[in-house]
Write a protein that binds this DNA or RNA. Sequence first.
DNA 1: CTTATACATTGACTTAAGTCAAAAAAAATA
DNA 2: TATTTTTTTTGACTTAAGTCAATGTATAAG
Lengths: 227, 227
Amino acid sequence: MDFKDSIRYIPLFKGLPDRQIEELSRIAIRYSFLKDRIIFSEGDEADGFYVLISGRVKIYKLSKEGKEQILHIVEAQEPFGEVPAFAGKRFPAHAEAIEDSITLFFPRDAIVQLIKNDPSLALNMLALLSLRLRQFTVLVEDLSLKEVPQRLAAYILLIGEREKTDEIELNINKKQLASLLGTIPETMSRILGKMVSKGLIDVQGRRIKLIDKKALEELAYGAKLDI
Amino acid sequence: MDFKDSIRYIPLFKGLPDRQIEELSRIAIRYSFLKDRIIFSEGDEADGFYVLISGRVKIYKLSKEGKEQILHIVEAQEPFGEVPAFAGKRFPAHAEAIEDSITLFFPRDAIVQLIKNDPSLALNMLALLSLRLRQFTVLVEDLSLKEVPQRLAAYILLIGEREKTDEIELNINKKQLASLLGTIPETMSRILGKMVSKGLIDVQGRRIKLIDKKALEELAYGAKLDI
DNA sequence: CTTATACATTGACTTAAGTCAAAAAAAATA
DNA sequence: TATTTTTTTTGACTTAAGTCAATGTATAAG
C-alpha cells in the first residue's frame, strides 16, 4: 500500500523533503480500530508511535476503582503514543478508539533514524511534545486549582471560540466530557442544570447554546455558580 | 567567563562533540538567583531556556486565590523553561528559586541552530520532554484519581527508594510538599499525624522514618487510612 | 537572649463533589 | 415498531478535604 498522500499532509511531517516522505510511507504500517477498541494499555511495551488518519482516539488513565481521567482526545492528523519512542519504553496511559479509526504506526528505530537525518522532523516533534506539555500544565491547573463549574465554563467557551459559534455541538458524550474535565457524569449533569437555570446556556442533548457569555467568562475566570 | 566544564557534564548535552560544547559555552549566559527570587512568571515572553547549575527551583501554577500547585522541583543539571523554546512563546508556569541558585540561560535561536546541526542534541531534548510528559501523566492521575493519603504514601516510598534508606529527610518543607501533592499544609499535617498514630511512620521535623513499609505500600496502592 | 517572622499543628466548621440507587430519556439492535 | 442497552438526570446521603482561627514550635534577626 502507498500512504504517501496521507503522510505528506500530516503537520508533524511538514517541511520534510520528498525522499523522507517516501521513506516514511515505506516504514508506516496501517492499523484500523473499530469504535471501543483498545489500541494500547498503560504499561504495554512500545516500539513506535501512531498517527491518527481518521476517527478519534482517547488517551486516558484509570483508577483502581475504574474511574477514568481522559488526558487528551486525539483528532485526525495528530500523532499519539510518542512518549515511549523517546523516553522509557512503555506507554504511560491507555488509548482507545472512540470512533472507528485508521492509524499509521511508525517504528521507533526508523523514526530515530529519520530524526538523525532531518532536523525539521526533530523540530516538529519537539514542538509537538512542547505543546502537549503546555496542555498538561493547564490540565493540572484545572484539576488542582479550579472547581468543576469553572472548568466546564472554560471548556464551553473554548469550543465556542474554536468553532466560531454560539451554538456548539459536543463531539463527545457527556460521560466523556465529565472524564475529560476530571469529574463524573452526575456532577456534570447537575452543573449543566445549574447553568441552564441561571440562564447562562441552553442544552439540547449535545447542543449547547451560549446565552450569557459574559457570565460564562466570569465563571471561567473564577466567579461562583451558587444555587 | 568560560562555562565549558559546567556544560560538558549536563545530561542534556551528553554526546555532543567538543565543537558544540564550545559553541554552547559561548552562547550561555549565567544568571544567579537568591532564594525566593522569581525567575520567570507564567505568561512572560521567553527567548530561551535555562539549565540549573546549582541550587533548586520550583515550577508552579497559582490560582486566583493564591493557592499554589508545584509542577516540578528542578534539581541541579536539569533544564527548565524549555516549552516556549519549541512551542508558543510564553512560559506556561512560574519559576522561583527555593535555594540560592545558579543557572545558565541558552537563547532559543542558538539552540535551534545547534539542534539543526546535531541530532544527538535533538534526541536528548526529545527524551527530556518525553520524560516530563510521563511525569505529568502521573501528576494528573494523582490529582484526579487518588486521595491525598495515597499520594503521600507513594511519595514517601519513592524518596525512600531513591535514597535507599528507611529514614528519609525531606529536602523541601511541608508547605511545599503539600503544594507538590496538590493539597494544603493543614491536610498534610493531619494525614502525617494519622500515619504516625497508625504506626506507619515516625516524624521528627523533616525526618520521616518508614516503620511499616508494607502498610505504606498498600496505602499507596489504594487502601484506606481510616481514623 | 529576646523579639520577630515564618512554619506547623490542632480544633471546629463548611463545602464541593463523590456514592448509591432509581427513574427517565435516548440510542442501538432485533 | 418493539425491546434492549446505554446514557443522562434526579434525589438522598456521605465524605474527603477545604476554610478560618488559634496556638504551638522552630528559625532567623536584632
